[in-house]
Structures are given as structure tokens and as C-alpha cells.
Design a protein around this nucleic acid. Structure first.
Length: 266
DNA sequence: GTCCAGGGTAAGC
DNA sequence: GCTTACCATGGA
């Protein structure tokens, strides 16, 4: 089916470091695995995209997943003109959207992410999906359910290049699978309450908690600070980015800063 | 072979 | 409250 989508660049999103199961399949095409489904997207002319789903599937899942109701030009227009770095960063990554990913997949993926680069995270996540995800079609596996992941032995998880993170992943999966923590139910919490709840997972500190908030709960005020953002803050902002200038959506701008800073590092 | 990665924990001040 | 050693692994 055909959709016209503004502020949508497949390569930028696939390489933005917010999701780990979106891969480029060609110069202008990508494949996304999410929600137990596969979507192939191809960019045609201008803002015209061809999606491999029907209208019902689009409405039921992908429209929300890609945050289609948001107009990202509003976030970009709100940037202080005098901030030349952020202005350049937003122009550079203007096709990035903040995907509405599932909380559990986001939580586990970002527990894995600590002290790994993006290709290594993708590789680990892919291994986990192959070990205990559900087969969707030939050679394509969904992200595992909490129950499936919690049921793995240490050895089985050990084959997924998790290193010292194995107990973190197991404990998180168990707490969710047992019902001790209802991840979907956390949606009703305020940002602060959600943040503190996420910190209760072993292996989740402030950076990972903020990533889960931003990418798994679409709390776009969350502003994760990793090594790349730290460099940007030190180089251009005297040590700290003024998040208070952008109340409620600093997380979107963080994504532009991360993508630009990381791709233009020497 | 060396350096570093979308950091966190626990121990020590 | 704020440092610091340590953590496994693979990509660049």
C-alpha cells in the first residue's frame, strides 16, 4: 500500500540507534521486525512510501509504531535559531522519527546495550530472537516473550554474546513473566514514577531508564545521556545541554544530536 | 593487537 | 552525596 509520510528517512531511522531490528534491504528499502510482524518498506518519489501491509494492518499496528500522528517539523521549528549545532543536527537527521516500540523489547535491548556498540547490540538481539523468538516466516523470528526469555538456561543465554549481562536479562525477564511487574501497566505512571520503577531493574541505570522511557513508552521529554551525547554537551554546550529550553520534547532533539554527533565524529 | 562501545554495580570515601 | 575498579564481548 502507498502512504505519503513527511520527515521519514529509512536509513536514518535504521541507523539512529533507537531500534535494533530494522535493516536496510536496498538503497531505498528497509525491513522492520516488530510486534510479531514483518514490514518491508520502500521509498519511492519524494515522501511516497510503499508498505508491504494492507490498510487494516497499517491501522492496527504500523501507523502507531511509526508515530504517524506527529508532525516532526514542529519539533524542528522550535529549535533556537542561535543554536547552530542543534539546527545543523536537526537538518541532518530530519527524517528520524521516535518509534513507538514495545516496552519489553526496549527494556531488554537497552539492558544489553551497555558497553556495546550498535552493531554488537544488533547481533546480540538477533541471536536472542533466534534462540527463543517465534518463527514468523523463513529465517525471521520475533522478539521473544518474557516467558520464553525467562525460560532460557544460563548456557542458552550465554550463547548470545551477553557477557556479564546474562543475569540482568534473566532477572528482568523473570520479573515481567512472573507478573511482578506489569510493563504495559506502567503506562499510567508519571514520568518520574516510571523512571524510578525502571531503575528497580538490575542492570538499568539512568541512561538505560531514559532510553526505555523515550523509545518504549514514548516519553519524549526523556533525555538519555550516553558517551556521544556527553561529547556533544562538552564540545558545544559547556558540559550540559539546556533541556529546559525544550519542555516536553527534548528527547526528540537528543535523537538528532546523537545521530549527528556520532556520524560526524573524527 | 589495541581501543572503545547508546553504562551499571558495588565498594570505598 | 561523589569517585573508582571492575565487568565480557565483539566491532572498528
Amino acid at each position: 500500500m502507498i502512504k505519503h509520510i513527511k520527515n521519514m528517512d529509512l536509513r536514518q531511522i535504521a541507523k539512529s540507534g533507537q531500534c535494533f531490528r530494522m535493516t536496510m534491504t536496498g538503497e531505498n528499502s528497509a525491513r522492520v521486525i516488530a510486534g510479531g510482524k514483518v514490514l518491508d518498506i520502500k521509498k519511492e518519489e519524494g515522501s511516497r512510501f510503499d508498505l508491504s501491509c494492507d490498510e487494516a494492518g497499517y491501522k492496527a499496528f504500523w501507523e502507531n509504531y511509526f508515530d504517524m500522528s506527529a508532525d516532526y517539523s514542529l519539533y524542528i521549528d522550535a529549535i533556537d535559531e542561535k543554536d547552530s549545532f542543534l539546527t545543523e543536527a536537526a537538518a541532518y537527521g530530519s527524517g528520524i522519527r521516535i518509534l513507538r516500540q514495545e516496552p519489553f523489547e526496549t527494556l531488554i535491548s537497552f539492558i544489553i546495550s551497555q558497553r556495546k556498540n550498535i552493531p554488537a547490540i544488533q547481533s546480540s538481539v538477533e541471536k536472542i530472537c533466534r534462540v527463543c523468538g517465534t518463527k514468523i516466516s523463513d529465517d525471521i523470528y520475533s522478539f521473544p516473550t518474557p516467558e520464553a526469555l525467562a525460560g532460557l538456561s544460563e548456557d542458552e543465554l550465554g550463547c548470545c554474546s551477553l557477557g556479564y549481562r546474562v543475569p540482568y536479562v534473566r532477572e528482568a525477564a523473570r520479573r515481567v513473566a512472573s507478573g511482578e511487574i506489569d510493563l504495559d501497566g506502567l503506562n499510567k505512571l508519571s514520568d518520574d514514577e516510571l523512571y524510578n520503577k525502571l531503575l528497580s531493574f538490575r542492570g538499568v541505570g539512568k541512561k538505560v531508564a531514559n532510553c526505555v522511557m523515550l523509545f518504549g513508552y514514548h516519553r519524549i521529554a526523556a533525555f538519555p545521556v550516553d558517551v556521544w551525547i556527553q561529547r556533544v554537551e562538552e564540545t558545544y554546550y559547556g558540559g550540559r545541554f539546556p533541556v529546559e529550553k525544550y519542555p516536553g520534547f527534548a528527547g526528540v532533539l537528543q535523537q538528532y544530536m546523537f545521530f549527528y554527533g556520532r556520524n560526524n565524529a573524527k
